[in-house]
Simulated scan of single mutants.
Amino acid sequence: MAVYFSIMLVIITAITGVIWLADKFYLAPQRQLKLASAEEKCDGELSEEIADKILEAPFFIDTPVQIFPVIAFVLVLRSFLYEPFQIPSGSMMPTLLDGDFILVNKFNYGLRDPVARNKFVEIGLPERGDVVVFKYPLEPTIDYIKRVIGLPGDRVIYRNKSLYIKPACLATDAQCPEFEQVEMTLVNKGEYSDGQSELTRYTADMPNKTHDILINHDVMPRTQHYFKQSGSQRDEFVVPEGHYFVMGDNRDNSLDGRFWGFVPEENLVGEAVAIWMSFDFERTNNDVLPQWVPTGVRFDRLGSIE
């Protein structure tokens, strides 16, 4: 859906931009000449009302001219700086909740054109632990949000609900690192649930970022459904060059890289950096107001994303 909006925004900007240029450099000067000619014929200045009438552009010219600067600003802001997204599910709990509205930084990972998404300015690449928005590799018209776990060349194991990471090692390195378990510290149990079971909250100590995760100890590992990579075990993933391995923070309720593989670098949209609004949606079918109407604002959730 986002890609269609981007295409429509570019088309509208282009059309209104052409009309704005035509009016500025041809149509508006023609109206000025028409006014001068009318004043010459009348042998003096016309009344202000008549002059304004002659200089007034028709609505199909004036409307695009008025909206072009706004549309162009939105295009630049959304395409190259920040884009708003809404969190539609609980796969990133407790970091992000259903009803959170977030801002995605689109220049941290390089500037891309808004339609073909070809990168034309290199700025940076994701770091392990970043929360990223990307085009779902199996259906690129859909935007997903997950956390980067593995960088290109990393080996990642998710076994018995524990995460192990072996960073990429170059052939020139004198000594390659071994697998290191991501330490988890218990926070609490029962604060969150999936509707049937209580979820346990842990703080995961990633190599360069600390964040909270949720685990459902009542759910058995679904290893048989994991992405099968040639030459590795079902619960082990070797991240190809130019790709990233991502997982949701709600580990047992997330359709992520464990099940479909890796995110190509060209699919990256940007880094989720802040929650700018958060709503509760707790209405039922018996309520008078529709369910999409918020029941409250979660002001305590506003701020940066860890």
Rank of each mutant, 00 (worst) to 15 (best):
A28D: 08
V219M: 08
T295H: 13
D130F: 07
K189V: 10
G124N: 09
E241G: 06
F80M: 04
L163E: 02
F5V: 04
F60G: 02
C169K: 01
I213C: 05
D23F: 08
V293G: 00
S89M: 04
Q32R: 14
A57L: 11
P294Q: 02
I305V: 15
S91E: 02
I15Y: 04
K106P: 03
I215K: 07
E45C: 07
G99Y: 00
R31D: 06
V133E: 06
P167A: 06
P140Q: 14
L33A: 12
L255T: 12
K146W: 02
G261T: 13
I275V: 12
E56R: 14
F73V: 10
P140Y: 06
R78V: 15
I54N: 03
R31W: 04
V121D: 04
E83Q: 15
G231K: 07
E198S: 10
Y164V: 00
V121H: 02
K24L: 14
G90K: 08
V18H: 13
A57T: 01
S232Q: 11
P207Q: 06
E271I: 05
V182F: 02
F299I: 09
V132M: 01
F259M: 13
A36K: 08
R117F: 14
M184I: 11
V297S: 04
W260L: 08
N160P: 00
I7R: 15
A38E: 14
Y26K: 14
N250I: 04
R159L: 02
D252H: 00
E180C: 06
L97S: 09
V187M: 03
E127F: 04
M206E: 09
E40V: 02
K228F: 08
E265K: 05
G248L: 05
E83C: 10
G190H: 15
P64E: 01
Y82A: 15
S254V: 07
T295W: 12
F299Y: 08
G17S: 04
N286H: 10
I215F: 09
